[in-house]
Measured scan of single mutants.
Amino acid sequence: NKFNKELGWATWEIFNLPNLNGVQVKAFIDSLRDDPSQSANLLAEAKKLNDAQA
């Protein structure tokens, strides 16, 4: 379904953000699993944090 596809894509993108540490990645992935409907918002937050830590 739509959420599974978005969840998978967001998970892959978060895993590939180079400036996040393992704890941050795990926290974002756990949040995605808790509420897949928020995948776009969580991915945006992860990208912002990644950019801030560059």
Rank of each mutant, 00 (worst) to 15 (best):
V23H: 13
V25A: 06
A10D: 06
N1R: 02
N41T: 13
L49W: 04
V25I: 13
N4M: 09
E13S: 06
E45L: 06
A10R: 04
Q24Y: 01
P18C: 10
A46Q: 01
N19H: 14
T11I: 15
I29K: 02
W12Y: 11
K2E: 15
A27K: 12
D35Y: 10
N1S: 05
L32A: 04
N21M: 07
Q38E: 05
D30N: 12
K5D: 15
F3S: 06
N50E: 02
R33Q: 10
E6F: 10
A54R: 04
F28Q: 00
A10Y: 14
Q53Y: 07
L49I: 11
P36F: 07
I14Y: 03
V25C: 03
N4W: 12
E45T: 09
A10N: 02
L42D: 00
W12M: 07
W9C: 09
E45H: 06
E45Q: 11
S37F: 07
N21R: 05
K5E: 14
A40Y: 12
I29G: 01
E45R: 06
S39A: 12
E13Q: 12
N16I: 12
G22D: 14
N4L: 11
L49R: 02
A54L: 07
K48D: 06
V23P: 12
R33G: 04
L42S: 02
E45P: 00
L43H: 03
G8M: 15
S39N: 06
L17E: 00
N21L: 12
A54N: 11
K47Y: 10
L17I: 01
P36C: 04
L7H: 07
S31M: 15
I29S: 02
Q24F: 01
A10P: 06
R33N: 13
A46T: 01
E13P: 03
A54K: 07
K2N: 15
Q24I: 02
D51C: 06
W12R: 10
L49E: 02
D34E: 14
N41V: 14
V25D: 00
P36E: 02
R33C: 10
G8Q: 15
F15R: 11
W9P: 07
D51P: 00
S37Q: 09
A46S: 01
N16T: 09
P36N: 03
A27R: 10
S39K: 08
K2M: 13
P36K: 02
D35P: 01
Q38R: 12
L43A: 03
A10V: 15
K5N: 15
W9V: 09
K47E: 03
N21S: 14
A27F: 15
I29D: 02
L42P: 00
Q38T: 05
I29T: 04
I14T: 02
S37P: 01
A40K: 11
K48Q: 10
A40I: 11
T11C: 12
N4S: 08
A27H: 15
K5L: 12
G22N: 13
F15W: 10
Q38F: 09
K5V: 10
Q38D: 07
K47M: 10
K5I: 10
D34S: 09
K47P: 01
L43I: 10
N21W: 08
Q24T: 04
N1P: 09
I14H: 01
N41D: 05
A27N: 13
K47V: 06
W9T: 08
V23A: 13
V25S: 04
